[in-house]
Design a protein around this nucleic acid. Structure first.
Length: 599
RNA sequence: GGGGCAAUGGUGUAAUCGGUAGCACGACAGAUUCUGAUUCUGUUAGUCGGGGUUCAAGUCCCUGUUGCCCUACCA
C-alpha cells in the first residue's frame, strides 16, 4: 500500500482545472514575479463590440475575473475594436452593463484596443525597419491565390523583398489616407511555406478609409486582430491570456510578433502566455454572433434582449441570476475537450438559487372559476376570510403575507379533470383537495358550455380545515386525508396579468448543426421552435404580486423574482406597468407528474 | 498528401509521484412534505481500439481509430 498520510476527516482539496494548475505552477516557479506572489496574476475579457454578449461570453468573464479574484490579481475589461466596419457604441454600452451585472469587477477604466493604435503603428514601423514586414501591393485575390493551401506551400509576393525604406514610405502614406481600401497591406515576413497557414506572411494592416466609433477619422489603416491582440495583452501586462481553442494555431504567430518586436531591443516588452480552452456549447442554443444578429434583424425575436435569446441581457430579462450563471460556469468546467453542455445544468442552477431566494406567490395562469356553494351556510355569504401564507417555507426569515378567501375563487384548469385517473391527486367530481393555506374543498358539480368546455366548478368546503389544516379525527379516531394541495386566487381581489411562457428557442439539441443529408438548403432557422413564447393574457394573480411587499427584500439588480407555487419561477418583465403586469417564466419547477403523464 | 488539438458513465468533469475510478446534472426506486417542488436515502452506469512496460496503467511507451480547428484585407 502507498503511504496514506492523508487524514480522512480533512476536506479533500478542491480539484483544480488545467488553467488553475498552470497558474499554480507559474506562481510557484516565479515566472511572472517573485516566486509565491499570487498578486501578479493578470487576466482580461476582450470582447469585440459587434454584438451583444451571450452565455458563452459569460463563462469567459467568470473564468477570467474568477481567476484574478481567486489569486488576488487583476482583471481588466478591454474592447477589441480594431474593425470600424462592424463595431458600434450601442454594443459597447450593452457589454459594459452585462459585465457589471454579472458581478465582475475590472481594474481601472474600461480599455480599448484603439487607445493603443499609435503604439501598434510604431512597432509596425520597427518591424519594417528590421526587415520583418513589408508593404504588399497584390490584390486580395492574388494574396489568397498565392497563399497555397493546407498541403501546398504558398509563393512569395513579388513585393516581399522591396527595400525597407520603400515599405516605410508606403506605410506612412497608407496611414495618411493616400490609398484606396484594399489597394495594399502591410504583411509580416515569416514563411510562405509554413505548415501553419497563420505564418504565411499574415496581414498586419489593411487600408480602411472608415470612421471609427472612438478614433473618428484619424486613421486610414487598421490593425488586424492577429497583429493587435497579443500586443494589447502585452501592453496591459496580461500574464494569462485565455482564449478559445480555434486560436491555438495563432499562438505561434503571437509569439513571433512579440519576439520580432523584442529583437535587438534593450528592454523587452511583456510576453503574455496564451492558454486555450473549449468554449461553452450549451444544448438547444446557438452562440454564433452572426446567427444571433440574423434572429434580431429578421424579427424572429423582439431584440437582442428578447427573453428567449441566449444573450446575457436576454437571459437576465428571462429571470436568470448572476449567481446561476456563475454556478453554471463552474459546473461546466474548464478543459480542452470540445463537448456540449446540457442546458438543463443552467436550469438546475437557477432553480437551486431561486429556491432559496425567491418569495412564493399564488398565480393562476389558465383560470377556471370555483364557487363554494356552502359558503353562506357557515356565516355571511359575502364575507372574506384572511389567511397567513409564508413567503418561503425554505427560508423562515422571509416572513409571510396575507391571502384572502371568499365564495368565488379561481383554480388552474389543469387541476380539474372530469374523469380523472386514480393517480390524479387534484380535483374531480366527488374528490377532495386542499386549497393551499385556505380550506379543504370537495367537488360536487361542474358546468359546461355548449362547446363542452368546463366553465365553472362547484365545491363545498369543510370549516374544520380552516387554514388548510387537517380536520380533527372522527368518532373512530380516524383522520381524513387528502392527496393533493392546489393553488388558487380569490376572485374578489384577483389582479389580472400577462404572463409570457418562455420555452427553448430551438427544438434541436444542436440547432446550428446541419443534418447529414443536407444538400445546401438547410438553415438553422429550420430548427426554430414555433411555440418558444406563449403569451397568457388572462392570468389571475394574488394581490401581493402587484407590488413588492414590505417584508420582501429587493434583488440586487432590481428585478422582482418569485416562485409561483406549483408552476415555476417567474420575474417581472421590463414591459410591466402598475396597470398592466407582465411576468416572464424563467423556468418551470421540476414536475414528475407531467413527466410520467407523458409516458 | 500538411499542421495543430482532443478523447473517462446518458451529459459535463475529477483522480497530486504509476497505487481504492470520485463529483455534479440526469434517469430510476423509496422516505418526508399544506408546492406531484424542496429536502433526505439508495440504485444505475464509465477510462476510444490493439499491443507493450510494470507487482500495479485513465495516467508511461508504441500503434491505430474517431472528432474538432486551420487556406478573411473578420474577430
Amino acid at each position: 500500500m502507498p503511504d496514506t498520510n492523508t487524514n480522512p476527516d480533512e476536506p479533500k482539496a478542491e480539484s483544480r482545472n488545467f488553467i488553475e494548475q498552470i497558474v499554480d505552477a507559474d506562481i510557484a516557479s516565479g515566472k511572472w514575479g517573485d516566486a509565491g506572489d499570487r498578486s501578479v496574476v493578470a487576466t482580461r475579457f476582450p470582447p469585440e463590440p459587434n454584438g451583444y454578449l451571450h452565455i458563452g461570453h459569460a463563462k469567459s468573464i467568470c473564468l477570467n475575473s474568477g481567476l484574478a479574484e481567486q489569486f488576488g490579481g487583476t482583471f481588466k475589461l478591454r474592447f477589441d475594436d480594431t474593425n470600424p466596419a462592424k463595431e458600434e457604441q450601442e454594443y459597447v454600452d450593452s457589454i459594459i452593463g452585462d459585465v457589471e451585472w454579472l458581478g465582475a469587477r475590472w481594474e481601472g477604466e474600461v480599455r480599448f484596443a484603439s487607445d493603443y493604435f499609435g503604439q501598434f503603428y510604431e512597432w509596425a514601423r520597427d518591424l519594417i525597419a528590421k526587415g520583418l514586414a513589408y508593404v504588399d501591393e497584390q490584390s486580395p485575390e492574388q494574396i489568397r491565390n498565392n497563399r497555397g493551401n493546407v498541403t501546398e506551400p504558398g509563393v512569395n509576393s513579388p513585393f516581399r523583398d522591396r527595400p525597407a525604406a520603400e515599405s516605410l514610405d508606403l506605410f506612412a502614406r497608407m496611414k495618411a489616407g493616400e490609398f484606396e481600401d484594399g489597394s495594399m497591406v502591410l504583411r509580416a515576413k515569416i514563411d510562405m511555406a509554413s505548415p501553419n497557414m497563420n505564418l504565411r506572411d499574415p496581414v498586419m494592416y489593411r487600408v480602411l478609409n472608415a470612421h471609427h466609433h472612438r478614433t473618428g477619422d484619424t486613421w486610414h489603416i487598421y490593425p488586424m486582430y492577429d497583429w493587435a491582440h497579443g500586443l494589447e495583452d502585452s501592453i496591459e501586462g496580461i500574464t494569462h491570456s485565455i482564449c478559445t481553442l480555434e486560436f491555438e494555431n495563432h499562438r505561434p504567430l503571437y509569439d513571433w510578433f512579440i519576439d520580432a518586436i523584442n529583437k535587438d531591443r534593450g528592454e523587452p516588452i511583456h510576453h503574455p502566455q496564451q492558454i486555450e480552452f473549449a468554449r461553452l456549447e450549451p444544448t438547444y442554443i446557438i452562440t454564433s454572433k452572426r446567427s444571433l444578429k440574423l434572429l434580431v434583424d429578421e424579427n424572429h425575436v423582439t431584440g437582442w434582449d428578447d427573453p428567449r435569446m441566449p444573450t446575457i441581457s436576454g437571459l437576465r430579462r428571462r429571470g436568470f441570476t448572476p449567481e446561476s450563471f456563475r454556478s453554471f460556469a463552474k459546473a461546466t468546467g474548464v478543459t480542452k475537450y470540445k463537448g456540449s453542455h446540457d442546458i438543463g445544468l443552467l436550469e438546475a442552477a437557477v432553480r437551486d438559487h431561486l429556491n432559496t431566494e425567491a418569495p412564493r406567490r399564488m398565480a393562476v395562469l389558465d383560470p377556471i372559476k370555483v364557487v363554494i356553494t356552502n359558503w353562506g351556510e357557515h356565516g355571511d355569504e359575502s364575507r372574506i376570510e384572511e389567511f397567513n401564507a409564508v413567503n418561503n417555507p425554505n427560508n423562515p426569515d422571509d416572513g409571510s403575507r396575507t391571502v384572502t378567501f371568499g365564495k368565488e375563487i379561481y383554480i388552474e384548469r389543469d387541476d380539474f379533470m372530469e374523469d380523472p385517473p386514480k393517480k390524479f391527486f387534484r380535483l374531480g367530481p366527488g374528490r377532495e383537495v386542499r386549497l393551499r393555506y385556505a380550506y379543504w374543498v370537495t367537488c360536487t358539480d361542474f358546468i359546461k358550455d355548449d362547446a363542452g368546455n368546463i366553465t365553472e366548478i362547484h365545491c363545498t368546503y369543510d370549516p374544520q380545515t380552516k387554514g388548510g389544516e387537517n380536520p380533527p379525527p372522527d368518532a373512530e379516531g380516524k383522520v381524513r386525508k387528502v392527496k393533493g394541495t392546489i393553488h388558487w386566487v380569490g376572485a374578489h381581489d384577483a389582479v389580472d396579468a400577462e404572463v409570457r411562457l418562455i420555452d427553448r428557442l430551438f427544438t434541436a439539441e444542436h440547432p446550428a448543426k446541419a443534418p447529414k443529408d443536407d444538400e445546401g438548403g438547410w438553415s438553422f432557422m429550420d430548427n426554430l421552435n414555433p411555440d418558444s413564447m406563449k403569451v397568457v393574457r388572462n392570468a389571475k394573480f394574488e394581490p401581493a404580486l402587484a407590488s413588492r411587499t414590505p417584508s420582501e427584500s429587493a434583488w440586487a439588480d432590481g428585478i422582482r423574482r418569485y416562485q409561483f407555487e406549483r408552476l415555476g419561477y417567474f420575474c417581472e418583465d421590463r414591459d410591466s406597468t402598475q396597470s398592466n403586469l407582465v411576468f416572464n417564466r424563467t423556468v418551470t419547477l421540476r414536475d414528475s407528474w407531467a413527466k410520467n403523464a407523458g409516458k
